[in-house]
């Protein structure tokens, strides 16, 4: 197979893999400051709707391919919208910790989904169809996606080695300690949250064109699980993990489907590889959390037993309460 033929055949998969890597990074960014946010799919959906609405209803219809400049403009607008929404959401929500933050971001994604299903401008349950194509074939999207991924990786590489990166790590390890050292945790948590949102919004704008159609099934709770799996399976100590995770896990269903076609494989196994891909996916998520070495996790792993710590905290609370009586 020649290089061009290969790219044509696997164009969709290759671009999807790189988009997966970018989405993994959008979840990884808040995690740099130890914040488990599941809001990325919400910003992804927002970016997609901005691109879909602008290109089908606002911009004038053009002969031939959709102008690249207009795509870049959409990406910029998606980034700005995501940033504004992320700041408005992040200021109240980032006061919450751990599980409460995760739940609040789930609620945010669900509210956006219900809005998308009911508003007229988003096309309701049907969604938006026939989003114009800027490239002749799907592999053309590499012209946009490769530079974006490259820039993001360089940016994150720089970020991790800079002062800001060390501050984020300090907050991730121990927010209270960082606070007492004179760091303003809210400021940096918001920064990493907004950066993650902007990335998700931009990827959404590209994906709307790439997928040709956009509806309320894009960027739901299921998507949160998938993106999280990208980060977890790849590892979350550096930005390389989510990139590798996003690429490999996006390709995994295709690889399994390919394996199902290998001759000599028992029928039932081939069948399972084909139809049970998501079962394997779920098992991978469970196994990557259960068997991951303690230090490879995305948040601080407590050295003492979590339960002992929670119990101690409750005891202290009780004492505080009794003391104040």
């Amino acid at each position: 197979m020649t290089m061009t033929a290969f790219l044509e055949t696997y164009g969709f998969l290759i671009v999807s893999m790189l988009l997966g890597a970018l989405l993994g990074l959008s979840v990884y960014l808040p995690l740099m400051a130890g914040q488990l946010s599941l809001a990325s799919p919400g910003f992804y959906a927002l970016g997609g709707y901005i691109a879909a609405i602008l290109s089908t209803q606002v911009f004038p219809v053009t002969e031939g391919s959709f102008p690249l400049l207009e795509l870049l403009l959409e990406m910029l607008l998606a980034a700005i919208a995501a940033a504004v929404l992320a700041i408005a959401l992040g200021i109240p929500v980032l006061r919450l910790r751990g599980i409460y933050l995760a739940i609040a971001t789930i609620a945010f994604v669900e509210i956006l989904r219900v809005l998308a299903l009911n508003l007229e401008i988003t096309g309701g349950a049907v969604g938006i169809f026939g989003i114009p194509q800027p490239f002749q074939s799907q592999i053309g999207y590499l012209w946009i996606v490769v530079p974006l991924l490259g820039l993001s990786m360089v940016f994150l590489y720089r970020l991790e080695s800079m002062h800001v990166g060390r501050v984020l790590r300090a907050i991730r390890e121990d927010e209270l300690a960082a606070d007492t050292m004179g760091i303003n945790p809210t400021h940096y948590k918001l920064l990493s949250f907004v950066l993650g949102a902007v990335l998700a919004g931009v990827v959404g704008a590209i994906s709307a064109h790439f997928l040709n159609t956009w509806n309320a099934r894009q960027g739901t709770f299921d998507a949160s699980i998938v993106y999280l799996a990208f980060v977890l399976s790849g590892g979350s100590r550096t930005f390389v993990g989510p990139v590798v995770g996003g690429i490999v896990l996006t390709a995994l269903p295709e690889i399994l489907r390919g394996m199902a076609g290998i001759s000599g494989l028992p029928i039932w196994l081939a069948q399972f590889l084909q139809d049970g891909r998501l079962i394997i996916f779920g098992l991978l998520i469970v196994m990557s959390t259960v068997f991951l070495p303690p230090r490879g996790n995305y948040t601080r792993t407590v050295t003492t037993m979590a339960m002992a710590k929670a119990a101690a905290r409750q005891r202290e609370t009780r004492e505080t309460r009794e003391g104040s009586d």
């Binding site: 996916f281 779920g282 998520i285 196994m287 995305y298 948040t299």
Partner: peptide, 19 residues
């Protein structure tokens, strides 16, 4: 003695498997 958030993710994985 892992972080409770890890358990959250692991339970998400279990949900994906069951469904």
């Amino acid at each position: 003695g892992a972080d409770p958030l890890l358990t959250l993710v692991s339970s998400l994985g279990a949900a994906v498997v069951i469904v």
